[in-house]
């Protein structure tokens, strides 16, 4: 069962989830759901919810969980090469947090009636997505800093509103995730600061990493514009706008992609200045009138390569996950067999 954005928007058209409940009862359930949203209360697993709402959440939470798990790879690859034992410890703790976030999020998705193993299968078969940002390679040690500062920084801005998202288990998972992510951003900034205060070669490495990670963060962590005014191609913009409008109506999403992107740019510009690094966008300048930083338009067309699954690093990311999963199959089977035997009543042995 894999949902496309189109299918979810279509499902959103019908309020009831199609199960044979008497009309009156269905109407009462739907009214209760709407009342929860209006009152700003959370929807809990026991509550009735529209099928489209459930499917949109599964899709979003799974994508988020997958992003945490795949997101371990670019930084995890540097664990063995961290240039000080302090940085090695910090990076270990960070990658460990990401595994933990993956677990909370898969658990949140499971409250919606799906199974973690099925979601992982969908990831491995390429049927569910993860943040395309991670399809960029982490080429130097400084990349681990740039990822933490910029990519996690974008994630915090993206995700902070999700701590108030309408689905209770997701909101609660996100509170913990965001707290830890905010810590990662500070660690990433601190790592970059050390490089910028180091030798010329270290500074150069830091700038090179920012040159490569700025666009993935600003573009891919927020996604294409999801309003009709966003300037993407008409079909994508229209679909994005419909999905986004429905997500906002359901209280799953609280801001458009472009609102969040602007917030991210406004955060990063002074931070980059503090580091003495240049963000690779000549269009960045303060706009007194708007009270925001302007920034250059994102060339979504040239970004198709990163958004698609066909790139060297994208293939590596999934292949790495699949290999780990397949290599570990005998371990999971053993653990399941052992647990089944332990749980079985004495007589069944």
């Amino acid at each position: 069962m894999v949902d496309t954005a189109e299918a979810i928007v279509q499902a959103a058209g019908g309020a009831a989830d199609g199960e044979a409940a008497p009309d009156e009862e269905a109407a009462a359930l739907a009214a209760h759901f709407e009342a929860l949203l209006r009152a700003g209360e959370t929807v809990e697993p026991r509550d009735w919810m529209p099928d489209g709402y459930r499917r949109m959440l599964v899709r979003q939470i799974a994508q988020h969980a997958h992003s945490e798990i795949i997101g371990m790879q670019p930084e995890g690859g540097w664990l063995t090469r961290a240039p000080s034992l302090h940085r090695k410890s910090v990076l270990l703790a960070k990658v460990q947090d990401e595994a933990g976030h993956g677990l909370y999020l898969y658990a949140a998705a499971e409250t919606l009636g799906v199974d973690r193993a099925d979601l992982l299968d969908a990831l491995h078969r390429g049927q569910q997505r993860y943040a395309a940002t991670f399809n960029h390679p982490a080429l130097t040690w400084a990349d681990t800093g740039a990822i933490a500062w910029l990519t996690d920084g974008a994630a915090v801005i993206n995700q902070a509103p999700l701590t108030r998202t309408s689905y209770g288990p997701y909101a609660r998972a996100m509170r913990r995730v965001c707290q830890e992510e905010a810590f990662h951003v500070r660690q990433g900034y601190d790592l970059m600061k050390a490089l910028c205060e180091g030798t010329p070669a270290q500074r150069e490495m830091a700038q090179d990493a920012v040159d490569r990670w700025w666009l993935p963060a600003v573009a891919l962590m927020f996604g294409p514009p999801d309003t009709l005014a966003g300037g993407a191609d008409a079909r994508t913009a229209a679909l994005g706008a419909r999905v986004s409008a429905q997500a906002i109506a359901w209280g799953i999403k609280r801001h458009t992609n472009d609102e969040l992107r602007q917030r991210f740019v406004d955060h990063c510009v002074p931070q980059a200045r503090g580091l003495g690094l240049t963000l690779p966008d000549p269009g960045i300048r303060w706009n007194e009138e708007r009270g925001h930083y302007d920034f250059g338009p994102i060339d979504w067309e040239s970004y198709r390569g990163a958004l698609a699954d066909d790139s060297h690093t994208a293939r590596r990311r999934v292949a790495h996950r699949v290999a780990a999963h397949e290599d570990g199959a005998w371990v999971r089977e053993a653990a399941a067999a052992y647990a089944a035997r332990e749980d079985a009543p004495e007589a069944a042995l």
Partner: peptide
């Protein structure tokens, strides 16, 4: 890390 049989074991 990232190669363990389960996410719990990566952790």
């Amino acid at each position: 890390i990232t190669r363990a049989p389960t996410i719990e074991e990566d952790l």
